[in-house]
Amino acid sequence: MTATSDLGFTPDEMMTIAAARALSNDDVCFVGIGAPSAACNVARLTHAPDITLIYESGTIGTAPEVLPLSIGDGELCDTALTTVSVPEMFRYWLQGGRIKTGFLGAAQLDRFGNINTTVIGDYAHPKVRLPGGGGAPEIATSCGRIFITMKQSKRGMVETIDFYTSFGHGEGGDHRQRLGITTAGPALLVTDLAVWKPDPVTKEFTVVSIHPGATREEVQETCGWTVRFADTVEETPRPSALELTTLRDLKERTRIAHQGGK
């Protein structure tokens, strides 16, 4: 898909670029802040110039010059095709089934793509109170499919999540259908070490490609569950020079913009 590059790159860069590649030019994508936002904008600035990016602040068809610090930065509105109210965003556009791909990050994730961004520990007496779901609970069930991106760690990728902020495949299999959810749910996980896809039957995330320089052992050592590997595990194509330059330029513009307080 991309030419091999002689440039060096970090696992974080590989993660963002591999996630960007999963998006297509005709995607309509609901963008989560952080890592998903970087991936979606790299896609827009490389192979998917016509992609529609939507942020939950109501901005539709946005094309930010720098990555927003929040989901409601002025840059998103200034460059959007249109900006609608938040109730309209959630009712007509998300609930109405207009959005093909939801792109989420996660604090805690399990093997079935269930996400926790609410609490670590008990809900009533949390060890750590996280920000909560925001738009994610309905993004997870109303978008046609869900892509997830996060860095691997034993703390983040766990056997059992502490709270079901956003429902993935539940206990696996047909759990979504049993709850009356008609959308596909988690269809892709991109970490700093590998690309994962759900098993067609069990829905457990399975490693389909490992990034250059990473190993099966590392993937397992940084994951809290016993990892399943596909029968054939590919090597993720290296970032191209264009992909790397695009990502680095975007990050640099973003750094300068946010440093100055503008």
Binding site: M89, L94, G133, P137, E138, F167, L179
Partner: peptide
């Protein structure tokens, strides 16, 4: 969730006692 809060405000503005929407599934 955001969808819940946005719907709850809209219901308030519309003079309805509650908001009804497709939400919180599996949450």
């Amino acid at each position: 969730s955001h969808a819940g809060m946005a719907n709850a405000y809209e219901a308030g503005a519309a003079g309805l006692p509650c908001a009804i929407f497709r939400g919180y599934r599996g949450a």
